[in-house]
Design a protein around this nucleic acid. Structure first.
Length: 430
DNA sequence: TCTGGGGTCCTAGGACCC
DNA sequence: TCTGGGGTCCTAGGACCC
């Protein structure tokens, strides 16, 4: 039996942090406890995480902040700009702690992971309870735990744990009274399931499949024929057959992306040159950090989805040779963007995507078109300066801006970085 | 005035080869 | 004259996730 299957008697736990970003903010600012809190996307654009109190106010994920701001004082609503350094750091602590509880661990996203568990029902319930209290005690964020025979069912169990406070954040499907799980499945729409989005949901409804129970009872072969192998796996998993492979057995990383919206629109080629210089260098840094080189570069820009004519220029270029050199990548990005953007159009976002990735280590392959020796050395120097003095310490050409450009990101409600910066560590008095 | 970012996997279709 | 068909590789686009 492979690791993704639970094995005889084995089970899979899905552990995730409730309202992760908000919970992280609360770890370092307990005054946020009990109050409605939202964390905003880049540029303080819209809501990406909500506390339970904020949800009770009817605030939805994706709501633009400018629509909420007028009511915030009246509601006592607190907004925070997103602080990914802090979230990444707390995520690492949570994952490290959780790893101790499983026979295997698969980190699925910043705030959730699958764990292998073994034992009888009483032991599973007990383990799930210990997991929950350990994370609360040692890291200070609340988690829910769902336990079942497959990943899809563990996700479902987690969903049940979240929505039923009397379960105290823990649900093992095997411990539910007979018929109870089926009863819930017959009431929850298919789109409540992991892997079934709005589109597929609509198509399923059209053939009479409305609830999780309906999908569970469907013929897997028919589902494969009419939909996809992905949905077929979901049907099998609902029926207890584990068939979604572990993420770490899947392919290596396929792409590195840096994409952001601007605080103010950009409409000249010169400004987009600046943007491309900064974004390409950001992407190059990530590439270097992962020890990769890229052979294909894609740039894109876009106008607002909410106004006027829509324009989404994009261009893909094959690089002369696989590279992680920020100079080569910047030049390619600027040229590609010049080739597809239309001056005078108000762009509000842009991005750089690197694909065709391969390991940068091993022997240097012949790079007949790579720049001169000095250029490659400069690329290395940039990397080491950044590593020592931080991401914005040095940059190339338009990317080396001493002051933030007019279009750069807005973050008005930032919490301190706490764990990421010595000067911002919280002070504890005993 | 102001509406996120970074990923993955699968499929269909075209180019090309034998 | 006959106008095949299987295989691979690549890319674009769809769908989904957190």
């Amino acid at each position: 039996m492979s690791e993704d299957g639970a094995g005889p008697g084995g089970r899979i736990a899905l552990v995730d942090v409730n309202n992760f970003y908000v919970s992280c903010e609360r770890v370092f600012d307990p005054s946020l406890e009990g109050r409605p809190v939202v964390v905003l996307s880049n540029n303080d654009g819209s809501v990406v995480s909500r506390s339970a109190e904020a949800k009770r106010l009817g605030i939805k994920t994706g709501t633009p902040w400018f629509q909420l701001a007028p009511s915030a004082p009246r509601w006592g609503l607190v907004a925070r700009s997103s602080n990914y350094e802090l979230y990444g750091d707390l995520s690492a602590r949570v994952m490290e702690l959780l790893a101790r509880f499983g026979t295997w661990q698969e980190v699925y996203s910043i705030d959730e992971c699958f764990l292998g568990l073994a034992g009888d029902e009483a032991q599973l319930r007990e383990a799930a309870g210990r997991i929950r209290s350990a994370v609360g005690r040692h890291v200070g964020v609340p988690v829910c735990v769902g336990v079942a025979a497959t990943k899809t069912l563990a996700k479902f169990a987690n969903h049940v744990a979240k929505r039923n406070p009397h379960l105290r954040g823990v649900c093992s499907l095997g411990s539910m009274p007979p018929g109870e799980a089926e009863h819930i499945q017959s009431r929850v729409p298919v789109t409540g399931l992991w892997g079934v989005g709005a589109r597929t949901g609509k198509r399923l409804n059209a053939i009479g499949i409305e609830t999780i129970a309906d999908l569970k009872a469907a013929d897997p072969l028919l589902i494969r024929k009419r939909f996809s192998v992905v949905l077929q796996r979901t049907v099998l998993e609902l029926n207890g057959t584990a068939c979604i492979p572990p993420v770490d057995e899947r392919a290596d990383r396929q792409q590195v992306m840096f994409s952001r919206s601007f605080s103010t629109p950009v409409s000249t080629a010169e400004q987009l040159d600046e943007v491309m210089a900064v974004y390409a260098q950001k992407a190059a840094s990530r590439l270097a950090a992962e020890g990769l080189r890229a052979s294909v570069l894609t740039v894109s820009a876009g106008t607002s989805r909410f106004s006027g004519e829509a324009a989404f220029p994009a261009a893909t270029v094959r690089l002369p040779a696989p590279t992680q050199d920020p100079i080569a990548l910047t030049k390619a990005a600027v040229a590609a963007m010049r080739g597809c953007m239309v001056p005078g159009t108000a762009y509000v976002r842009a991005g750089v995507v690197l694909t065709g990735l391969e390991p940068a280590d091993g022997q240097e392959t012949l790079e007949p078109f790579a720049g001169p020796q000095e250029q490659r050395q400069l690329g290395g120097l940039l990397g080491s300066v950044r590593a020592k003095f931080g991401e914005s310490a040095i940059g190339l050409g338009a990317g080396g801006l001493a002051a933030p450009a007019a279009w750069s990101m807005k973050r008005e409600f930032s919490s301190p970085r706490y764990t990421g910066e010595w000067a911002e560590l919280p002070v504890v008095r005993a």
